[in-house]
Amino acid sequence: MALETLSEVRAHDGVQGVYRHDSTATKTPMEFSVFVPPHAAGEKLPVVWYLSGLTCTHANVTEKGEFREMCAKRGLIFIAPDTSPRGEGVADDSDGAYDFGLGAGFYVNATKTPFAQHYQMRDYIETELPHVIAKNFPSADMSRQSIMGHSMGGHGALTIGLRNPERYRAVSAFAPIVAPTDVPWGQKALSGYLGEDQSAWSEYDACALVRGGARLPDILIDQGTADNFLAEQLKPHLFQKVCDDAGQSLTLRMQDGYDHSYYFISSFMADHLAWHADRLKS
């Protein structure tokens, strides 16, 4: 579990780093970024996880997410993992499609050959990487964690949060895939990683988890009205209905004129982080 430092730079009086380690979950090297804000010696800081979307790595949000100013202001450690295993011998989509395989791990534990060998992103995010953070970043207060994400990463944040309500004090998302069982992106990914038996898909579907009794204190979602994936792939109204029927608190904000890009994410990132910070107080 030795950690290799790829880069560290000063930002907002804190440290923005990129790191690599050999993952036991994915059996590949994995890279991730961490921003540690300025803090007093010995001070413990809450941790915000950010899960990225299709085709992304840790670099997208690290370079374009505009999170550091608010993290420095509110004392938040910000962690951005990769979206899938990578490297020689890691299975990819046979046609090189962007929505399956490399960069599109969907935060599941794959059970279908050949993806099961490396695509164990659920275990990586839920179990292995938190241990790496706890061991290597002494300022991280692992008793105060929250999780957020974008698109495929929003799907990951919602499902991981709903499965682990005792761990994450806050869960939010930008333009998440809320019902992968019912949309083309999710159907392709879940059948490809888990097989055709849809009973195995429900633990990776936010709508199904809420219907099945999973609960969180509150959920925040921002969705742009000009998102070209809104009608076919995202369908936030399905999650709204499920939450309303179940009595699950959900704040769904439809943001007029915003698309699916990091221009949208960066516009509301500070707002999400302030919302998280309020729920991560000691």
Rank of each mutant, 00 (worst) to 15 (best):
D141Y: 05
A231C: 03
W49D: 02
A72E: 02
Q145R: 12
A173R: 00
A140S: 05
V171A: 04
I147C: 07
A189L: 11
D92H: 07
G195D: 07
F239I: 08
G65F: 08
N228G: 10
H58P: 02
P236F: 02
G87H: 00
L6F: 04
F35S: 09
K27I: 03
E66P: 00
P37L: 04
A206C: 03
A206D: 08
L162V: 10
D271F: 07
G17L: 02
T159G: 04
V178Y: 03
D222A: 01
I221M: 15
K112W: 01
A2P: 08
W201R: 04
S199M: 01
D218K: 07
E66M: 11
Q145N: 14
T127G: 12
L209S: 08
Y19T: 09
A274P: 00
A189G: 09
F115N: 09
G247A: 10
H150E: 14
W49Q: 02
V48G: 12
K235Y: 01
S199Y: 00
D245W: 06
H58V: 01
R144A: 06
T83A: 15
L45T: 10
Q117S: 13
V90A: 03
P81T: 03
E128C: 02
G17I: 02
L216F: 14
S7P: 04
C56G: 09
T24K: 14
S202G: 07
E63I: 04
I147T: 06
D99S: 11
L250D: 07
T26K: 00
V18S: 14
F67A: 13
A274Y: 00
H39S: 11
G212I: 09
L220K: 12
K135A: 14
W275M: 11
H12N: 13
S146M: 05
R86V: 08
R253H: 05
A11E: 08
A200C: 06
D82M: 01
L209G: 05
H276I: 12
G153E: 01
T159K: 06
T62Q: 11
T181V: 05
G17C: 02
M142K: 03
P138K: 09
G257M: 08
P130R: 10
R163Y: 00
R10Y: 00
Q117F: 01
E43Y: 12
P184W: 05
A173S: 12
S146L: 06
Q187T: 12
F67H: 11
R169Y: 09
Q16N: 11
A170R: 09
R279M: 08
D256A: 15
